[in-house]
Amino acid sequence: MAGGVTSSGVVGDSFAAVRTRLLAPSWLVLLFFMFAPMVVMLIYSFLTKEFRGGVIWSFSLGAYDQFFLDRGLFGDEPPKIEWTYITIFLRSIWQALAATVLCLLIGFPTAYFIATRPVSQRTAWLFLITVPYWVNLLIRTVSMKFLIRDNGPLNEALLAIGLIDSPLALINTDFAVQLGLFYSYLPFMVLPLYASIERYDFTLSEAAADLYASRRAVLFRVVVPSVKPGLVAGCILVFVPSLGAFLAPDLLGGAKNFMIGSLIEEQFKGNAGNWPFGAAVSMILLTIVMLVLLVMARSRTRDVGSAA
């Protein structure tokens, strides 16, 4: 693929002269209304917690101490490594990964299918994918819960056609959470993928087929590398928000175990009322995600560099 004109991530410089002007709006808006509030949160994570929410303006590492060190139920044992929150992080990462894979498995073929429809139908398909999202996420998730419950329509239908003998226990399982996350974020996979595949030059597939590449080889060795930017964008848009999601885990998973989202939620809206800790957990999450994304972005730029 090296030297191929459709190699992923083509960086040009035809707009380099006006780069600063083009970036100014996003810098302004995001520095002021996103970065500045996050600096507030970063500061909060190093402050003393106020009982029942709020912060006291004196420096403290208490929040990070709570995250990494286990001092026993009464806080007076010698510190050990705290596994509680690491476990919660790993669980969330696993659930988000599974949801991303599910979205990819269904989303890629769907995006590909839409991109190969006649031009006149494509926009309608895009709308068709996003229409369900006009209904609020809470309502959609509650309906999903209704569908997959033990004696719900899905189980009844499967029983009726004889595919299963006893109802599938779906509700309140990890799989239900993954299904909920998948359902919450599916269009966020399909649309970026579509935008990339639609640009794909199908003569490349023909050329590959002429060289006796199988369909599978055409798909994985030619199509997928060409649409990699869309693939990456879709995965980011599903994986990252899934990490902090709490509605699907709460309603479909039964909220028996904290996820990162519900853990943080509890610090601000729940009984714990520990703002510095909530801020610290968010900062740790932000750092991890940011590092992963930057490493990915770096490696992509390098790809491009070698291809050019």
Binding site: V11, G12, D13, R19, V240, G244, S282, M290
Partner: peptide
């Protein structure tokens, strides 16, 4: 994508994607 390479590229990418990295309640 068309502005050539520049020093704040990675930082800008981080800034732009920041809103999805931070849980909503925060």
């Amino acid at each position: 994508v068309r502005g050539g390479s520049f020093r704040l590229r990675s930082a800008t990418f981080g800034l732009i994607t920041m809103p999805i990295m931070v849980p909503e309640i925060v």
